[in-house]
Design a protein around this nucleic acid. Structure first.
Lengths: 199, 199, 199, 199
DNA sequence: TATGAATGAGCCTTCATTCAT
DNA sequence: AATGAATGAAGGCTCATTCAT
C-alpha cells in the first residue's frame, strides 16, 4: 500500500472513530484519547490530520452533512415527478441514518449548534436540507400544485422538513422498535392532503 | 421579608441567571462562576440551593418545560373547539419563547440532549409537548375529525409538533426579522388541509 | 490572621518559591508543579495570584529588579561624595545577590532575555542598573571629575557596569570560594586609575 | 562531489540553520522542525548528524566559541605589542559578531546557561574568552606593565572582558545605530588610564 | 542515507467542588 | 446562610524521537 493510501486510510479511520464517539458523548464530553483508542492510532497522530478537536468535529459534521446531501440528491433526482421525488428524499434520508444512527445524532446536534453560535459550530453549511428540498418544492409551487396560495415555497419546505424530523426523532428515540418505513405513506398523505376530514 | 422569602428569592435569582448563561453557552461551556456573577451571589451559595451543576441544569430545564406545559394547557383549555385549541397552543408556545428566547434554546437543547445519553440529560420529563398535545388530538381522532384513518393519534402529534418546531427554529434563527405570528394561519391550513391542490 | 494577610502571605510564598525554582531551572524547564510543591500550595492556587506562568515569571523578575533598584538607591544616596557612592552601590549590589544568589541568576537571565525579544521577556523595565548609575556618573562628569573628555557619560556607565558584572559572574561561578568583597578596592582602582603603569 | 563532502555539506547546512533558529528563539523554544525546514533537510536527517537536540545545540555553541577563539588568536597574534594586541582582540571579537549577530546571542546565552546547571549547558568549554586573554595579560603583568600591583592577572582579564561585553551588549541592543568601532579607542583609554582626572 | 508519519510522555491550564471563616 | 480562596483531577495539545520505507 502506498504511503498516500495509508494516510487516507488513517484519515478515514479517525473520522469514523470520531463520528462514533462524538455521537455518543457530544463534543465537550468526547476525549481525544477515546477517538485515538477507537481508531487505533496514537493521540498525536490525530493532530497530523486535523488542526485540533474543533476541526475534527467540523470535519465529521460537514462530511456527514455532505454525504446526506449527495444521497438525497442522487436518490430524488432519478424520479421525474417532483412529488414522488420528495418521497424518495425521505427514504434516502432515513436509510442514510438507518445505516449509521450516529449520523442522526450529528445531524440533530447540528441544528442546536447552529442556533447557538459558539466557536465549534462554525460549520459553513447552513440549513442544508432546506436548500436541498427548496428547488423541488419551488418547482411544485410554480406549477400550481401546492396550496394554500398565500404560503410561500419556504413554508412548504419548513413544514415538510419539520414532519420528517419529527418522525426521525421518534424513530431514533426508540431504537429498532419504531417502523419508520411504514410511516412514509402516512407522512406523505398528511403533508399532501392534510389531517382534517370534511365529509 | 421573611427568611423563607429571601431564600426563595435567591433561588429564583440563580435560576434566572442560569437560564441566561446556559442558553448562551450550553451546559459544558457554562462556568458556575458566570452564573454566580450574573445572579450576584457567591459561587458557594449556589451549592446551598442545588446539589451540583447538573442539578441546576436539570432545574432550569424542567422548570422551563413545566412553565411551557402550564402555559399551553392554560391557553388551550379555555377554548372549547379542539381544533381551535391547537391554534391557541401554537400561539401560547410562541409567546412563551418570544418573551424569553433563552427558553427556546433550552427547549431545543433538550431534544438533542435526550438523544444522547449523558449524565446531564437525566432530565426526568420525556417528550413533554407530545404528551401535552396528545390528549387533545386523541380526542379529535376519536371524534372522527382526523384523516387519514390509518394514521394513529401519535402520527398527528408528531406531524403537528414537527411543523411547529420547524417554524420556531426558523423564527429563532433570524431573530426579530421573521414574523412567526403571520405564519400561524398558514401552519394551521397546511396541517389541516394539506398542501396538494386537486382542482 | 486576616484573610487579606493570608492572601499576601500566599503571594509572597509563591513568589519566593518561584524565584527559587526559576533560578535553578530557567523559565522553560520550570514546572508549575515544582513551584506549587515548593510553596506548599495547590497548583491551581498559583493561578489565583498570577494569570499564567509568564506573568509569574515577570513578577519574579520585576520584583527582583525593583528590589535591587531600591537597595542601590538607598545605600548610595546616603553618601555625599559621588565617587564613594559608586563604591556603596557595588557593595549594595553584591550584598543583595549574596543574600540570595538566586537573584543573581534572574538578573543575569534578564539581560539575555532582553537581548532576544520573546514573549516572556516583556518585562517593562529596561537596563535598570544603567539608569540607576547614570545620574551619579553624569554628575561626576559634569563636575569635570572624569576622563577621557571624548567619552560620554554612558560610556562610563557601561564600563563601570561591565566590570561589576564581570566580577559578579566570577563570584557566582565559584560559589563561596571567591571573595568578592576583597576585590572591591581593586575594581574601584582599576575603574578610576586604569591599568597601565607609566613610570 | 564525494559522499564525504556531501555529508559534510549537510552537517554545515544544519549547523547554520541551527545557529539561526537557536539565536532567535533560544534552546527550549526552538523546534527541530524549524531547523529542518531552514536547512532544507528532513527532520530525521538531523539525527544522522547529531545524537539529539542537546548535542546539536552544543555543537552550535562550541563551534561558535571556537571560531571566536580562532579569530581572536589569529588577529591578536600578529601584533607584537601586547597592549596593541588587546585592541586587535576587541576588533576581532566585534567583527566576528558583526558578521553574524546570531553568534552574539549564542555567546550571551552561553554565559547565562553556564550559570544554571541544566542538561543542555553541559558545554565542555568554560569561560572561553577568559582563557584567551589570560596569557597575554599575564605576560603584560609579568613585564610590570600593569597596575595596581595588588591586582592579579585574572582581575585585569575580568575587567577587560567586562567592559567589552558591556559595550557589545549596548551595540547589540540597538542594532545598526550604535557605532561600536568609534568606541574602541575610548574603551582602550578607560581600561588603560582609568576615568578619574587628577589635575 | 534521507525522510516524515507515528507516537505518547508530559505540561499548562481550567473549573467544579469543598470548606474555613 | 453566604462567601470565595484553595484544590487537584483531567484533558487538549506539543514536540523530541523513532523507525518503516
Amino acid at each position: 500500500m502506498s504511503i498516500v493510501e495509508k494516510k487516507e486510510q488513517h484519515r478515514r479511520s479517525i473520522l469514523k472513530a470520531a463520528l462514533f464517539v462524538f455521537a455518543r458523548h457530544g463534543f465537550e464530553n468526547t476525549k481525544l484519547h477515546q477517538i485515538a483508542v477507537k481508531s487505533k492510532v496514537g493521540k498525536g497522530t490525530i493532530y497530523n490530520y486535523f488542526r485540533d478537536k474543533v476541526a475534527l468535529y467540523q470535519a465529521v459534521v460537514s462530511e456527514t452533512m455532505e454525504q446526506l446531501f449527495h444521497v438525497i440528491v442522487a436518490r430524488s433526482d432519478i424520479v421525474d415527478n417532483p412529488l414522488q421525488s420528495l418521497t424518495a428524499a425521505i427514504i434516502a434520508t432515513f436509510e442514510f441514518f438507518e445505516e449509521s444512527p450516529d449520523r442522526y445524532v450529528i445531524y440533530l446536534r447540528y441544528f442546536s449548534d447552529t442556533a447557538t453560535s459558539s466557536k465549534k459550530s462554525k460549520v459553513p453549511i447552513v440549513f442544508l436540507n432546506l436548500s436541498i428540498f427548496e428547488p423541488k418544492i419551488r418547482e411544485c409551487k410554480a406549477k400550481g400544485f401546492l396550496k394554500p396560495p398565500e404560503a410561500e415555497a419556504e413554508d412548504f419546505v419548513l413544514s415538510f422538513l419539520g414532519i420528517i424530523n419529527s418522525f426521525l426523532f421518534r424513530w431514533f428515540s426508540s431504537r429498532k422498535t419504531y417502523d419508520f418505513r411504514a410511516k412514509i405513506p402516512i407522512i406523505a398523505k398528511i403533508f399532501s392532503h392534510g389531517t382534517y376530514k370534511h365529509d
